[in-house]
Design a protein around this nucleic acid. Structure first.
Length: 340
DNA sequence: GGTCCACAGGAAAGATAGGGTC
DNA sequence: GACCCTATCTTTCCTGTGGACC
């Protein structure tokens, strides 16, 4: 059933992309000056989750690397590397300059100085989920660093710029913007069909089943690929030659839920306790939530720390905070539905 | 309108932990 | 091993805000 499991992984970068030629062309043009030894234009990729932003950014940079001999590139997920130190560290890592940098004994200014002293080939840095950065000043520093071209990936422009200071906003306003829409049903079917062709044995899945997955994914390619992966795994476990409708009905809820589960799995003990309380009880006010949290854990953190945790979980898109001041409530973010 | 209370979130200080130096 | 440096996490203190109650 599964010939190549890599193509069903979310981080897989395909050799060819479906239905995003225009976006690839715009980004390629923004990066084109690099081919002549000039810096590329800062690019901003915007759009909803699963619309192909990350994939297109990495695909285009890879294609550039095939055409330019002297070029370095690095992908940084700001969701995981959200501090200034970690972003700079990850970028230096991309050019092998972290050998003697230690997490807790190297001042972050040293990291920036080292990056500014970089005199190697032109360096393209893809900063994914850039709206999750704790300290956006690192973007300004990177903007001013010679030899670095930034490709920024975010969901919503308003959310991104709301946290930036004027200096940075005015710089980024002149960047190349590429907006991604959700995939249409037939586009998603084509993407899934390609993945099935590359990763599964012939005849493993039919068009009707692909359409079912695409319909359930509601325009989100990550969810669609997740469902396909789950379905293939289930079929494999049952020694079935093909993914049937029956298998799909089992795989669809799991595929939708998988992204949230993997995010929740990264939470620390106290954060997870809060998240579990909210998923068990639904919407709660901060006081009740804190009381329940205190009962659940052995050594509870202070209210202020819990507020920080909740803020972080809101950023992770696990929790929704509604209302202000005394009217504030928290609830777990609903499962993605077909209605979006 | 005044007061109380619950809440958010900023600032600063303290605690913690990893690594370097002597 | 003691001490220093640093990033990161946590706590404490504080201000501002808005709803509830009188």
């Amino acid at each position: 059933m599964i010939n190549d499991a890599r193509v069903l992984q979310p981080e897989f970068i395909p050799q060819e992309v479906e239905h995003r030629n225009q976006e690839v062309n715009v980004l390629s043009n923004a990066l084109k000056p690099i081919m002549d030894g000039q810096p590329g234009e800062t690019s901003l990729l915007l759009g909803p989750s699963g619309a192909g932003k990350t994939c297109i950014a990495q695909f285009t940079v890879e294609r550039l690397r095939e055409n330019v001999l002297d070029i370095d590139s690095q992908y940084v997920n700001c969701w995981q590397d959200y501090t200034r130190f970690r972003v700079l560290y990850r970028i230096l890592e991309g050019v092998g300059r972290t050998v003697d940098i230690h997490r807790r004994s190297t001042p972050k200014d040293e990291l920036l100085s080292r990056l500014q002293a970089y005199d190697g080939p032109h360096y393209v840095v893809v900063l994914d989920e850039v709206d999750q950065l704790e300290d956006e000043s690192v973007l300004y520093d990177l903007y001013r660093t010679r030899g670095i071209t930034m490709v920024l990936v975010a969901n919503r422009e308003e959310d991104l710029f709301s946290g930036f200071d004027e200096r940075l906003t005015s710089r980024l306003h002149s960047s190349v913007r590429i907006t991604f829409d959700k995939y249409h049903l037939d586009e998603l079917v084509a993407i899934l069909s390609a993945r099935a062709r590359w990763g599964l044995s012939e005849g493993a899945i039919g068009n009707q089943q692909l359409a079912l997955i695409a319909d359930a994914a509601a325009g989100d390619a990550r969810i669609g690929i997740g469902i396909l992966r789950n379905a293939a795994r289930l079929a494999d476990q049952r020694s079935s030659d093909a993914i049937t409708n029956e298998i799909l009905h089992e795989a669809i809820p799991d595929g939708r839920e998988e992204i949230r589960r993997s995010t929740a799995a990264k939470l620390r003990e106290h954060q997870r306790a809060l998240y579990e309380i909210l998923t068990e009880r639904g919407e709660m006010n901060p006081g009740d939530l804190y009381d329940a949290y205190r009962e659940r854990v052995d050594e509870p953190k202070t209210k202020r720390t819990v507020r920080n945790y909740l803020q972080k979980m809101e950023h992770y898109r696990l929790v929704v905070a509604e209302g202000e001041k005394r009217a504030r409530t928290y609830r777990p973010r609903e499962r993605p539905s077909r209605d979006g």
